[in-house]
Amino acid sequence: MSEGTMQRRAQRDQRDQRAKRLHRVLVCAAAVPVMLVAAGCSSDSGSDDGKDKAADKAAASKSASPSPTVQAAAYKKLPEPCAVLSKKTLGDLVPKGADSGKEGSSSDTATRGSCSWSSLDNNGVKGSQFRWLNVALLRFESDVTRGEGDKLAREYYTKQLQDAQTADGAKSVKTVPLTGTGDEAANVRYDLKKKEGTFKQNTVVARVENVVVTLDYNGAGLAGDKTPDADDLAKAAQKAAEEAVAAVAKANGAGTGGSASSGTPSASKGASGSSADSSDDSSAGASKRPTKSVSKS
């Protein structure tokens, strides 16, 4: 074989080798996008699965969360407001008006109610004795937003006491805590001078569980008759308030002690309906006691 022939064969072998290498490079280059696409699809699929699993887990956790609850109110109803006091008590407090109880208007008698009596004992030229009595009842339901019924009643109880203590024109204001009258009670006593005479005012506020009782009782000697004894009026007002509280407990199946623990079924956990509005004083009926604040003497 000549030298020229051998040189041409070597050149041909080199070309063949270069062609094979180029072919392998092209095949690998074509395979790379396919692998990238496959890897990308696999990555996206895993990402979606993770999101779906997280969403399912969050939904399951939310559905498993318990609904908010609040302790149910102990008392579910109110007694007839004009029947909370006995005939004897009415005869002592309003002797000339024991049978003339006037029930106040109410859009929901299970939540609020009131009754008032007035008495004028005319003694002719010796003057006359005037007495006025009002009993107001306000019941609070437990509410998941506002809280338990007895808590709402305590707030209203405090507000009623403050209103009585700052009554317009009140003189010699004195607040006396009371025992044996519901869960908490106090009598706000003061003098109120009017052109007809000096009125001795008593406002007894008592709370029993989720119900607040506000009893107003005042008296005056008119047309020259003597002013009634303040202590006697205060004792009579407290006695009447005790009866009113006992009537609330009795209406709900409890004993006369005024506590839900003696006869009322235990309150169960659960959400309940709407509550009485503690800012609405319409349940007090046409109360004759003033409510604007003044300085005390």
Rank of each mutant, 00 (worst) to 15 (best):
Q17K: 10
R18T: 04
A19S: 10
A19D: 04
L22G: 10
L22F: 07
L22Q: 15
H23C: 06
V25K: 15
V27R: 11
V27N: 04
V27E: 11
C28A: 14
C28E: 13
A29D: 06
A30Y: 04
A30S: 08
A31D: 03
A31G: 02
P33T: 13
P33K: 14
V34P: 00
M35S: 08
M35E: 08
L36Y: 04
L36D: 01
L36N: 02
V37E: 07
V37L: 14
V37Y: 12
A38D: 00
A38H: 11
A38V: 08
A39M: 02
A39E: 01
G40F: 08
G40E: 06
G40R: 06
C41D: 13
C41T: 15
D44C: 10
D44L: 15
G46V: 06
D48Q: 08
K51C: 01
K51Q: 04
D52N: 03
K53A: 12
K53V: 00
A54W: 10
A55Q: 07
A55H: 12
D56R: 09
A58E: 13
A58P: 01
A58H: 11
A58D: 15
A58F: 11
A59H: 10
A60P: 00
A60I: 01
S61T: 11
K62E: 03
S63P: 02
A64S: 03
S65T: 13
S65H: 15
S67R: 11
S67Y: 04
S67K: 08
P68M: 10
P68D: 11
T69D: 07
V70H: 06
V70W: 04
A72V: 06
A74C: 05
A74D: 12
A74N: 07
A74H: 05
Y75F: 14
K76C: 04
K77G: 05
P79S: 12
E80P: 01
E80C: 02
E80R: 12
P81H: 14
P81I: 11
C82Q: 14
A83W: 09
A83G: 05
A83P: 01
V84I: 09
V84N: 10
